[in-house]
């Protein structure tokens, strides 16, 4: 989605920042409008004989500035952000930047790897299907990808765990690395981590493979059998080269779309996979933060995903202009 503003990235960034500000304000409001706050929710356990007296609750609230007007609290947050301070979690007092940092790497790796896998599998699949539309392989791949797409993610995770971890014992069951991994050398340690990521990445990517491959196929079918192709073949280009060059170009548009979706989904998208495979990622952090009313963490995550989204959109816009000549004209 872009108007006449492509050539003015500075303005784009400016409006982007305003958008970000607006979004953070809405999120802040929402976090304070929900019933309960970090103090009243506490740790979620209730024990008679160990309850906090009400006067102490008020003291605790004052500690966290929860008794002040919402706008004032937002102002305090904003002031800290400008100084580069993301604040401390209400839940365990650790700096928000630390909590985000630990998990960012994992979520990023997970998403990047699954995107890579999606592209690596879907583009050839889609291209092959487009080469011979209506053929048996086309129909079978179509059916298979649709079947895959219809399986809910947590269900797939469960099945993968049962087959590959429990029954076959080929891959680890959960977590980031094995208990003994710390003692390993660097390379085996990376391999250990890689092994732990195989199932989660598979889980995240199978849905996108269906979408992307059908998109590629749809876009390629026409162009591969049109005049342009005949002309190219007449010029002596091999089918393989044509496929590769053309397929990637065509696929780049939906790929960018997918990447564009990936970034906003960075925070929420992999929640399920993170839960099933016990991976400490951002999605899980976000859900927990909302249930715990941990406003600084919620805001930190919003800022992160918002920035990533905007960065993604702006770069995608610029790249669209490069790749799709229609847009340049438009």
């Amino acid at each position: 989605m872009n108007g006449p503003a492509i050539g003015r990235p500075a303005r784009r960034i400016g409006t982007g920042l305003l958008t970000l500000l607006l979004v953070t304000w809405v999120v802040f409001l929402l976090s304070h409008l929900v019933p309960g706050d970090a103090v009243s929710v506490g740790s979620g356990e209730e024990s008679i004989g160990q309850r906090i007296p009400p006067e102490r609750l008020t003291e605790l609230r004052a500690l966290y500035h929860l008794d002040e007007p919402v706008a004032r609290q937002y102002g305090m947050w904003l002031r800290d952000i400008v100084r580069g301070d993301l604040g401390r979690s209400f839940h365990d007092g650790r700096p928000v930047s630390e909590k985000l940092g630990e998990r960012l790497g994992i979520t990023l790796t997970l998403n990047a790897l699954s995107l890579a896998l999606m592209i690596a599998l879907a583009v050839p699949l889609g291209a092959a299907a487009a080469l011979w539309p209506g053929s048996r392989s086309d129909r079978w791949t179509g059916a298979a990808t649709y079947a895959l797409y219809a399986v809910p993610v947590f269900w797939a995770g469960l099945l993968l765990q049962i087959v590959f971890s429990v029954r076959l014992e080929w891959l680890p069951l959960y977590g980031l690395e094995s208990p003994e991994a710390r003692a390993l050398e660097m390379l085996p340690r990376i391999a250990d981590r890689g092994a732990h990521l195989v199932l989660p990445v598979l889980c995240l990517s199978y849905g996108g493979i269906a979408y992307l491959s059908r998109f590629v196929r749809a876009n390629l079918t026409e162009s591969l059998h049109g005049d342009a192709v005949r002309a190219a073949r007449a010029r002596g280009l091999s089918l393989g080269r044509l496929l590769f060059g053309h397929a990637f170009r065509q696929a780049s548009v939906p790929m960018l779309t997918l990447a564009g979706f990936l970034l906003p989904g960075l925070v929420g998208g992999s929640v399920i996979v993170e839960t099933v495979f016990a991976l400490p990622g951002l999605g899980r952090l976000f859900v927990d933060a909302v249930f715990q009313r941990d406003v600084p963490v919620i805001m930190g995550l919003t800022l992160l995903s918002g920035t990533a989204t905007l960065a993604g959109i702006v770069s995608a816009d610029l790249l669209y202009a490069v790749l799709d000549p229609r847009v340049r004209r438009g």
Binding site: G3, P264, V290, F291, I313
Partner: peptide, 30 residues
Amino acid sequence: GGWTDAAISRVVEAVLCFPALLLALVVLAM
């Protein structure tokens, strides 16, 4: 197209930046 498109793009950007999970949690759980 034109300005309508551009304005809508801004709105879409804002919505995309907004964590949908929060909305889901708030509306559905609370």
